[in-house]
């Protein structure tokens, strides 16, 4: 049942502590989590629980105080700064709460940008294709300022998928949108995710949104608890998940 090569994200005994004036804060200690390729995982928790910090550790953006993170079999901490950046751009994509589109570029150009940076000759058709998928084929030449919030996030989704990443990290992707728009966007996000078989790590505080993922984790007082009140299906790899229920040791 355990096929190690199929893990997209593999963490062992992660710990993250911060020094503040009030003393040392242990955000989490000895946290382990394995996510298989193509799986979608939601991490929910209240504000300040450390969701974003966990995401940044999983994405190799931040360095854990101790423990290891392996993404697609690669230990990013063993890579140089430049190698790490290159690896990330090759394999990871992000969707942010605040969209982060470049205001001086059109929708199409924004989607095209990551391919352009790599020098992909097929950038334009690939970007158009993605914009079609998010239903914005008629908005290609619009600037972000001319798009609604929902449309902007759809452009951001198209941009995230255009590089066909192995892993996609989405940080509160509907946080800046109203419920209905958010719902539509999430549907699109999951559709494309399924088509491209991308591993999705979704950070949210919205339980309904989290329930759309294959697995749900709740980050609470430094402990990652698997399962949510609205789990819709039986987890395929229950045994592994047990190992991930770890929290503060002391």
């Amino acid at each position: 049942m355990l096929d190690k090569t199929s893990f997209a994200i593999e963490t062992h005994h992660l710990a993250k502590t911060f020094s503040t004036q009030a003393g040392v804060i242990h955000l989490f200690n000895d946290l382990s989590l394995n996510i298989q390729q193509g799986e979608s995982v939601a991490i929910i928790g209240q504000s300040g629980a450390g969701k974003s910090t966990l995401l940044s550790l999983l994405a190799g953006l931040d360095v854990p105080t101790s423990g290891t993170v392996k993404l697609l079999e690669t230990d990013l901490s063993q890579l140089s700064d430049a190698e790490r950046s290159a690896w990330r751009s090759e394999n990871l994509s992000f969707i942010f709460q605040a969209f982060h589109l470049l205001p001086e570029l059109t929708a199409l150009e924004n989607v095209q940008l990551p391919l352009d940076i790599r020098g992909d000759k097929q950038a334009a058709p690939k970007a158009k294709n993605l914009l079609d998928k998010v239903g914005l084929s008629d908005r290609q030449s619009h600037y972000p300022a001319q798009l609604s919030g929902g449309e902007q996030q759809r452009v951001a989704i198209a941009r995230a998928f255009v590089t066909t990443p192995s892993i996609l990290f989405a940080d509160e992707p509907t946080g800046n949108l109203d419920a209905e728009t958010g719902e539509n966007i999430i549907t699109q996000l999951f559709d494309i995710n399924a088509q491209q078989a991308t591993t999705l790590v979704l950070i949210t505080h919205d339980a309904a949104l989290a329930s759309r993922c294959n697995r749900q984790f709740r980050l609470e007082q430094g402990i990652l608890i698997e399962g949510s009140t609205k789990a819709r299906q039986v987890e395929p790899n229950q045994e592994i998940n047990k190992g991930s229920r770890v929290g503060l040791a002391e």
């Binding site: 430049a82 950046s85 290159a86 990330r88 751009s89 090759e90 992000f94 982060h100 470049l102 940008l113 990551p114 940076i117 790599r118 941009r159 590089t163």
Partner: peptide
């Protein structure tokens, strides 16, 4: 700053 972060997340290298 945030633009740079975004561009780097999209794969822009430091030389670029």
């Amino acid at each position: 700053r945030s633009r740079t972060a975004l561009l780097m997340s999209l794969g822009l290298s430091r030389i670029q």
